[in-house]
Simulated scan of single mutants.
Amino acid sequence: MQRAFSSFVRGGNSALPGYKLSLAATLLWTGFFIILPLIALTLRPWQDGIGAVVNELHDTRMFAALWTSFSSAALAALFNIPLGMLLAWALVRGNLPGSGLANALVDLPLALPTAVSGITLATLYGPQGWLGAPLAKLGIVVAYSKPGIVIALMFVGLPFVVRTVEPVLKNLPRDLEEAAALLGARPWQIITRVVIAPLVPALITGFGLAFARGVGEYGSVIFIAGNQPFHSEIAPLLVVVRLQEFDYSGATAIALILLLTSLLALALVGLARRKFSVWGDGA
């Protein structure tokens, strides 16, 4: 027993000392902080019986909130793809003055408290805001509606797209573009087949990360959304409402649906990324 324990601590046949022990500690840490809460979340809605779960499936307010969250997150992530790609291109290839400051500002939404982001966006796009007032004169209402939700999710999700595309652009040889031009490729062919093609897996990854962040976003959205049931109420807010009503089954049921749908979306993003990675390598 002592010999087996000593071999386990030393790492056995691994060249790294303590490999098995560090692996066991990592798996234990992961199981305690990730797997165990997910199992609890999966089992909690069923503790009150299957009838409680079936009853939650007839909650039209829940489905409206889920649709608002997922559709807004998908739109925001989709809009962030061209914006993030252009911003990453400017940071890597632009050589513009103040690029260091711009590079730091990209990560600001990740460091800024979400409540501060929400209050700032609501102030800017409100009826009397710097951007909201001119848009209101044009008949465009942003604050306290679904467009406000999309803008808030674009703000918090943009860094994920930029940071996934940026390293790929840095490692993309500029000789490929010059070679394509010398071989007679047109500008749009260079952009689509030489530049964008290797970026497709990174763009898909950025889309998935931004989408996953947007689905669960709370603080930056509630101040600008208006929080009207069946119109601009997001699912995370409805979870809080259900908890305040002591409806723990309803809250965990919504959380479980968010979890399963997010996992499914990320799995589909992973499949698409592998497919286009093979296409990119073959190209």
Rank of each mutant, 00 (worst) to 15 (best):
Q128D: 12
V116N: 09
W130N: 01
G129E: 15
A185C: 11
V141M: 13
L135P: 00
L131I: 13
Y125A: 04
V156A: 11
S117T: 13
L169T: 02
V156Q: 03
G118K: 09
E166K: 12
V194N: 08
Q128V: 08
F160H: 02
V116P: 07
W130P: 02
I190W: 01
S145K: 14
A185I: 01
A122Q: 13
L183N: 13
K170C: 05
T192L: 15
R193E: 12
I149T: 09
G126R: 04
S145T: 12
L182Q: 08
L131Y: 10
L153K: 10
T192D: 07
T120A: 15
Y125D: 05
V165I: 14
L153H: 08
T114Y: 06
V194E: 07
L183M: 11
P167Q: 07
L135N: 08
S117F: 02
I119V: 15
W130Q: 10
I191N: 11
P167S: 04
E177G: 06
F160D: 00
Q128W: 01
V142T: 00
G157H: 04
P167N: 06
G118Y: 05
P167G: 04
A181C: 06
G139W: 01
P173R: 04
G157A: 06
A152C: 06
G129I: 10
A133S: 12
T192H: 10
L172H: 10
E178Q: 13
D175F: 04
I149S: 09
V141E: 11
P167D: 07
V116L: 15
L121T: 02
L176R: 11
P167K: 07
K146I: 15
G129N: 14
L172Y: 01
G184Q: 08
G139C: 05
T192F: 13
G148M: 08
W188Q: 07
V150W: 05
K170W: 10
V194M: 04
I151N: 07
P147A: 11
L131H: 06
K170D: 11
W188I: 08
D175K: 08
M154K: 07
P127W: 03
Q128T: 10
Y125I: 02
L158Y: 02
R193T: 06
L131F: 15
I191Q: 14
P147S: 05
R193P: 02
E166W: 00
L153M: 15
P173H: 03
L153I: 07
N171E: 15
R163L: 12
T192I: 07
